[in-house]
Write a protein that binds this DNA or RNA. Structure first.
Length: 268
DNA sequence: CATAGAGATGACAGATCAGA
DNA sequence: TCTGATCTGTCATCTCTATG
């Protein structure tokens, strides 16, 4: 059925995604503000609270956050979405040129659902031809189109400037709370460090103080104990939980589980 | 789908050093 | 004294394959 046809097409800062089957997104970190449009099917986003972007929905995701996504095709059809990343340098330039700034650190929702907007929809449709003829999408055009997206977003809702033009890097936040909420995201320690506003060295030191264990070890143990709970108390299956708790492949999950608990996960 | 194992590699732990 | 950057050996983790 699924001959692995190209599912993701990347042009500069544009991403066209299509899937015939329900599929997890592979990236768990949002490096830049991202504007997305669900053309067909829906996206389930875990942050870790679940948010659903239905067919036809548009959303703006703030940069510097962890999100797991599941792409769900419509019945009998194909999942299709377009995303555009809004790079910091372009946003800074736009901010300077138009003298629009955020009034302070952004405190609103990290995933903003945008109400239906004919102009934004028209904009996304204008991007479609480039995915079939990528050669036409020059760097200059990419910049123009990105600028257009920013302009349209501000027209759509001027208050989005608070999100778009917040150029602050993450400040030093409560490490314990953050880790307990985000341990199931499988990203490098350096990523956790940045997101909590620390250097890698500082992160390790603080981490050791709080959890009495190095980050890597604590993470696997935390993930395994969560998996244990899901398997034992909730009666779920290994193949269902290993991704949820932050493992990448089933093979390694089984191995690690058995090493810690002495039993294979399927025997619980 | 679940497990096991082997082999490759890349991330992490932990120490050191420099600057604030 | 605290913070951040850098380095290195080791081991954990991933990939791949085989098997039930």
């Amino acid at each position: 059925m699924s001959t692995n046809m190209p599912s993701d097409l990347i042009l500069n800062n544009l991403l066209y995604s299509c899937e015939y089957e329900k599929k997890r997104g592979n990236e768990q970190f949002v490096p830049e503000h991202t504007l997305g449009f669900m053309m067909a099917g829906e996206s389930h986003l875990y942050t870790p609270d679940i948010r659903i972007l239905a067919e036809g929905a548009m959303g703006l995701a703030r940069r510097n956050q962890l999100v797991k996504s599941v792409k769900v095709p419509p019945p009998g059809g194909m999942f299709r979405s377009i995303s555009i990343f809004l790079p910091q340098d372009l946003l800074r330039r736009y901010s300077a040129e138009n003298n629009i700034t955020a009034s302070g650190p952004y405190t609103g929702d990290s995933l903003v659902s945008l109400p239906k907007d004919a102009f934004l929809e028209g904009y996304f449709n204008s991007l479609l031809p480039y995915f079939s003829q990528p050669a036409h999408f020059s760097k200059a055009l990419a910049d123009l189109k990105t600028k257009e997206a920013i302009e349209l977003l501000l027209q759509h809702n001027y208050q989005l400037k608070e999100l778009l033009f917040d150029f602050n890097e993450p400040h030093k936040i409560d490490l314990e709370a953050f880790m307990l909420q985000n341990y199931m995201f499988n990203v490098p320690v350096s990523r956790f460090a940045r997101l909590t506003g620390r250097s890698v060295a500082g992160f390790k030191r603080d981490f050791e103080k709080i959890f009495k264990a190095p980050p890597g070890q604590w993470l696997t143990q935390k993930r395994l104990s969560e998996a244990y709970y899901l398997l034992k108390e909730k009666g779920r299956k290994p193949s269902e939980v290993y991704l949820d708790v932050g493992f990448e492949n089933l093979s390694h999950f089984s191995f690690a589980f058995k090493k810690t608990y002495g039993v294979a996960p399927s025997l619980l």
